[in-house]
């Protein structure tokens, strides 16, 4: 990277990663694509930036938006030559969500993923485990809809995907 650092308009990998940390999941706007675990590689070569991402769900309609958002964020910071690739491996699992991402989810009112047969999903509002699954599929395919029987608030649970 020493050569590229000298030219104008050249970016370090660190700078690119910092720009990318502003790109959020369009459906959970408090979690960055890095914390969600879908950002796989960033390659900076001269003025060219290549970003590799992986899809969460096979049919996730947000992937297209995420690709556009990445290009837009990089473009705003002066990156001209860029490529965003959608890889088919590694296969994304909810284990790839960072602790920071899980905390952001919880604070946003979405219960973070546990295991597939987990019965005790706790309410992100009041922490009660006295909750009921209303539907296995919530506002998006990656979430289930729950209701807290203690504080009576409905909430989304980010399903375990592993």
């Amino acid at each position: 990277m020493t050569v590229t650092d000298q030219a104008d308009n050249c970016f370090s990998k660190k700078e690119i990663l910092s720009i990318l940390s502003t790109v959020k999941d369009p459906e959970i706007p408090v979690i960055s694509i890095q914390d969600l675990g879908i950002l796989q590689n960033v390659d900076v070569s001269g003025q060219t930036v290549r970003v590799d991402i992986i899809p969460t769900y096979s049919g996730c309609p947000a992937m297209h938006t995420i690709k556009t958002d990445i290009k837009q964020a990089l473009g705003q910071h002066g990156v001209v030559d860029m490529e965003v690739r959608l890889l088919d491996q590694p296969i994304w699992t909810t284990d790839m969500i960072s602790p920071k991402g899980r905390a952001a989810m919880q604070a946003y009112g979405i219960a973070p993923p546990l295991s597939i047969n987990e019965k005790k999903i706790s309410c992100p509002q009041c922490d009660s485990t006295h909750t009921t699954c209303i539907s296995e599929f919530g506002s998006t395919a990656c979430k289930a809809l729950y209701r807290c029987e203690s504080c009576l608030e409905p909430f989304d649970y980010f399903k375990c995907h592993a």
């Binding site: 096979s58 049919g59 996730c60 088919d88 209303i134 539907s135 599929f137 506002s139 395919a141 809809l145």
Partner: peptide, 20 residues
């Protein structure tokens, strides 16, 4: 409502598989 959302979410997965 919830079931309506579930049916179309499963649909989306299926169309995602088809696309692949």
């Amino acid at each position: 409502l919830e079931e309506d959302v579930a049916l179309t979410n499963v649909s989306l997965d299926m169309i995602g598989h088809a696309n692949i």
